[in-house]
């Protein structure tokens, strides 16, 4: 069936099979392999993408279900080659180690910062609790979100530990 939706701010029109999951459409048909599949069961959050700005697991949605809606993947975060402040912060604090969870974590982070530009540590922990990371112990990830938050809000970052 024909599927029309907006992907990373561009209109996409593509033929898909009824049982195709969104993650498979992204990775196999559209070659957007930034979105990772971890558990495939909605528990690890590695496959997180934004659907109309809200984080969802792309392994638990059929491609057919995003008709006329807006999907953002990790490939859609940078603008004209410039990394999103959250991406920059992640690389600076060491929040990216093996990197498998990073795309999902970044999309959860961006959704959080769009909704709440100055989240508390507790709010950050809650917002990212659906994304598992087995390398970092999360501390550097939380630091990255706080750094991104300060930069987005134009606060001084001179004294940041980076």
């Amino acid at each position: 069936m024909k599927l029309d939706f907006v992907l990373n701010n561009k209109r996409v029109s593509i033929n898909v099979k009824g049982g195709l999951r969104l993650i498979d459409l992204l990775r196999e048909q559209l070659d957007l392999v930034g979105t990772k599949e971890g558990c495939g069961k909605g528990e690890c959050g590695a496959c997180t993408v934004l659907l109309d700005g809200k984080p969802v697991c792309s392994c638990l949605i059929l491609a057919s279900q995003v008709r006329n809606r807006e999907v953002t993947t990790i490939e859609g975060l940078s603008i004209e080659g410039e990394m999103h402040p959250a991406q920059e912060a992640f690389t600076e604090t060491g929040a990216v180690q093996c990197g498998f969870c990073s795309p999902g974590l970044l999309l959860s982070t961006v959704a959080l910062l769009n909704e709440n530009p100055e989240p508390s540590r507790e709010q950050i922990r809650r917002a990212l609790s659906g994304n598992l990371c087995r390398c970092t112990g999360y501390e550097k990830i939380f630091e990255a979100v706080e750094l991104a938050s300060r930069r987005i809000n134009g606060l001084s970052v001179q004294n940041d530990k980076v």
């Binding site: 909605g42 659907l51 969802v56």
Partner: peptide
């Protein structure tokens, strides 16, 4: 329920 991702769907 579950996580933010699950609650959103």
């Amino acid at each position: 329920v579950g996580s933010k991702q699950i609650r959103n769907r």
